[in-house]
């Protein structure tokens, strides 16, 4: 785990806590960066590595929960909240908005490290997903216009004959286009092609009436 590239961000206004947490996370062999306020965290340059944000709720410039709401729209690492006196409404709110955990001070290292590991795993998965999708998009961009027309017809389940009639080309020509599409998108089977189209959010424009319903 420690071999992977990663980063743990800690935001707490109390320097003693910041210091102690950095020490604790570092003692577990992880890379850690600490900030004294939400503003400092937002302003900092962050590499694209999988990350985790350990966020104190009571911050001098903005409440941690509000910061969570603020960054919810964009891409951000999963959050582990820490607080001096946790209450149930804050906890519910934090978890509902996607926080990994909410820990009340003082907390043991087991709880904290478990939460940080979960968060990093989540972020890693998120990044991998994002990277896979990016590759697919590149491949899709390599398709010719005709091949882009053929793709939705094929994944909609039309027979070659039907798709060819739809485009006004011969069945043989369509089969050639189809083969090119599958090769370019690296889809070994039609089922793979359908999954890829789904990830690319290509709409199903046709359906085989009477046969599928």
């Amino acid at each position: 785990m420690s071999t992977d590239e990663h980063m743990v961000y800690i935001v707490d206004d109390d320097p003693r806590i910041r210091e102690a947490l950095c020490e604790l996370v570092a003692s577990h062999g992880m890379q850690v960066t600490a900030f004294g306020s939400a503003g400092a965290y937002m302003a900092a340059q962050k590499p694209g590595a999988p990350a985790c944000l350990v966020l104190d709720i009571e911050l001098p410039d903005i409440n941690g929960l509000d910061l969570q709401g603020l960054i919810a729209g964009g891409e951000h690492p999963p959050i582990v909240f820490i607080t001096g006196h946790g209450d149930i409404p804050s906890t519910v709110r934090a978890i509902r908005h996607g926080a990994v955990d909410l820990l009340t001070k003082p907390f043991g290292d087991t709880e904290l490290m478990a939460a940080i590991r979960t968060a990093l795993a989540q972020d890693r998965a998120r990044l991998a997903e994002r990277a896979g999708l990016e590759a697919l998009r590149l491949r899709y961009a390599a398709l010719t216009p005709r091949e882009r027309q053929v793709l939705p017809l094929v994944v909609s389940g039309l027979l070659n004959k039907q798709a060819a009639a739809e485009l006004g080309i011969s069945e043989t020509t369509l089969q050639i286009h189809r083969r090119h599409v599958m090769r370019k998108l690296a889809a070994p089977s039609l089922a793979d092609l359908v999954r890829i189209a789904e990830r690319l959010e290509i709409p199903l424009t046709h359906s085989r009436h009477g046969e599928r319903q």
Binding site: R16, E19, H85, K105, P106, F107, L112
Partner: peptide, 18 residues
């Protein structure tokens, strides 16, 4: 009181780890 206590707990865990 809680803040120093929390720091103490975290530090003692780190110390143990080192």
């Amino acid at each position: 009181v809680n803040q120093p206590l929390a720091a103490i707990v975290a530090n003692s865990h780190a110390c143990y780890r080192w």
